[in-house]
Amino acid sequence: MANVVRDVFFSLLQSGLWNRAIELSGSFPLNNEQWREVFIMSSNHTVEAIVFDGLNQLPVEYFPPKNLLLEWTVKVDRIERRNLWMNKIISQQAKFFKNLTIQPLLLKGQGIASTYINPLHRVCGDIDWYLQNKKDYDAVNRKLSNLGVEITFTAGFSCSYSWNQCEVEHHKKIFDIHNPFSYGFLRKIEKEEFNKKQELTIEGETVFLPSPLLTFVQINAHILKHLLSFGIGMRQLCDSARICYVYKDLFDGGKLKAVYKRLGILKWIELLHVLLVKFIGLPKEYLPFPMQEDKNADWMMEEILTAGNFGFYDSRVNLEKERADNVRVDSVSRLKSNFLKYIPYAPMEAIFFPVTQFYSKFVH
């Protein structure tokens, strides 16, 4: 990939994410092939609508060719429509839970989208709910089964089902932390933060979000989980940056740092912070605690760029076979490679991630 394409991608991404003017450089204007690469890169990282917002900050003479601009516009329109549709689904489900006198927490997705300048431009995959105790988890699933909804239990102490053709997941665990020696500490933190949960109105219904501190741990642990498996997209980094920006004064940064340290992931978080500032454009004063200036995280960004969203665009593997068979290829070698990359920065997570994923397949 040519450097000019990468430079333009990050310039447009930062412009769209923060509503900043673009500093025009020698990278502009792009030719048609370069614009196509920027579009593909944006799509592979599910940030095409954010990059599109940045594109609209350019002078008209620097725009992509008309056919690509039309294709891009249509794709953004689909993203907006899907988000509006998903908001209706969340509203329906909020009523369903209210009738059961259960208040789950909405994780990731539309809750995090609310921290964006234009929430409709954040690509959302499915709907994730955290049921805070086994009684509620079982009661909701039992009610769904009685209604004829087919539930599939998945690794990670979760289950999934389709609600009006929308994929929904229920989770027994709020955090993707795999070190079993941390579970007691996590329960303690969750209990301390319980009354700090946030409220969000979606389509006239109130939904509940984790507290800002719990959101940081939940979102960033989720990023680490996917880096330990097959990869993550730029969208998840944007999520992390936006919560830094919006939640800046809503929690204790020192406490959050202590939590990361207790979980054994602080060294990795410090790398993540470098990425958020250097590549995503987060002003460093919005980090929850001061950045370690001497950290080099370029290698991690290279890995993220190569693998693409959840590793679905990793050119190092046989993608045709993976898509044809709908199954991951070269799983063992990919997991081993990621284990070696991240064990210096999050050793307990690297060790226990595969163990927990295997074990949780048999526990519903």
Rank of each mutant, 00 (worst) to 15 (best):
F181R: 13
K225R: 13
H222S: 10
N220R: 15
L228V: 01
T215V: 08
K188A: 08
I174F: 14
L237G: 11
L224Y: 07
E190D: 07
F194H: 14
S211E: 06
E199C: 13
F175L: 05
R235A: 02
G233H: 08
S229I: 05
N220P: 07
G233M: 04
F181G: 06
I223L: 08
I219P: 04
R242K: 13
L213S: 03
S211Q: 09
V217F: 06
S240W: 05
E192N: 12
S211K: 08
E203G: 10
L224W: 02
R187I: 06
K196S: 10
P210R: 10
L186F: 04
L224S: 03
L228F: 01
L213F: 02
E192S: 15
Q198I: 01
V168M: 02
F230I: 02
S211C: 01
K188H: 12
L227Q: 13
Q236E: 12
E193G: 05
N195V: 12
H222W: 09
P180I: 04
S240D: 13
G233V: 07
K191N: 09
E199S: 09
S211G: 04
P210N: 02
E192T: 15
D239W: 11
T201L: 06
E190Q: 14
T206H: 08
Q236R: 11
V217D: 03
S240V: 08
K225H: 13
L224P: 03
G233N: 05
E193N: 07
I189Y: 05
E169G: 01
I174K: 11
I202A: 09
F181I: 05
L200A: 06
H226M: 06
C238V: 05
N220K: 13
F194Q: 14
V207W: 00
K172T: 05
T201P: 00
E169P: 01
G184N: 13
F175S: 03
D239S: 09
E193V: 04
E199Q: 10
D239N: 15
P212G: 05
H170I: 01
